[in-house]
């Protein structure tokens, strides 16, 4: 596996994973770049061999977690306002956001309200066209587990969206009255 292939394989799920921990999207991308750099430089130290995707995925996740912790510590030391509430993840981005429809905004809001494990796989899998296998390698779980979580996440999202729509309809009706 060369560097380009390595980045291409893990870029999307890793940024999604870091974002799911609580980093804003632009910072998540930076942390991911640092993690790729450190993991590639020290790849010989990866136990089990860095050519094995499952081993290297776990190794990369560990490196990224360490980088994320360093970033979080630095941030708290600088006393920059940092709220780790996961419900604000998607709002704190500085990336250019394309004009969105009302439905997509609602969907983003629903993703924010998902339980951690479900939100994690959604961000990792759907951010880019990443295969379930690569997500599973990065999280050190089975493909079946990821598939199960994705299914639960989509079902939960549907429920959340339906609840939101019902509430909005009721509010509108009340306003009409």
């Amino acid at each position: 596996m060369d560097l380009a292939e390595f980045i291409e394989t893990y870029r999307g799920p890793l940024i999604g994973l870091i974002a799911s921990w609580g980093a804003p999207w632009d910072h998540a991308a930076e942390i991911a770049e640092e993690s790729f750099c450190e993991a590639w430089l020290n790849r010989e130290a990866c136990r089990g061999g860095w050519n094995h995707p499952d081993m290297f995925g776990r190794w990369l996740r560990g490196v990224a977690l360490n980088r994320y912790r360093v970033w979080a510590r630095d941030r708290s030391r600088r006393r920059v306002r940092f709220v780790s509430d996961s419900s604000e993840i998607l709002d704190r981005t500085t990336a250019p956001i394309a004009p969105s429809t009302e439905n997509l905004d609602a969907l983003r809001g629903a993703i924010e309200r998902l339980p951690d494990k479900l939100r994690q796989v959604v961000l990792m899998h759907y951010l880019e066209e990443t295969s379930v296998k690569q997500v599973a390698d990065l999280l050190s779980v089975t493909v079946k587990t990821i598939e199960g979580r994705l299914y639960q996440a989509r079902r939960e999202l549907r429920r959340l969206l339906d609840d939101t729509h019902s509430t909005a309809r009721i509010v509108r009706m009340l306003l009409c009255l």
Binding site: A19, A29, A95, L104, I111, L123, Y126, L127, E128
Partner: peptide
């Protein structure tokens, strides 16, 4: 598709 569309703005 909706999920991909929702997260598309955050891609690098």
């Amino acid at each position: 598709d909706d999920l991909r569309a929702a997260l598309h703005p955050f891609r690098v």
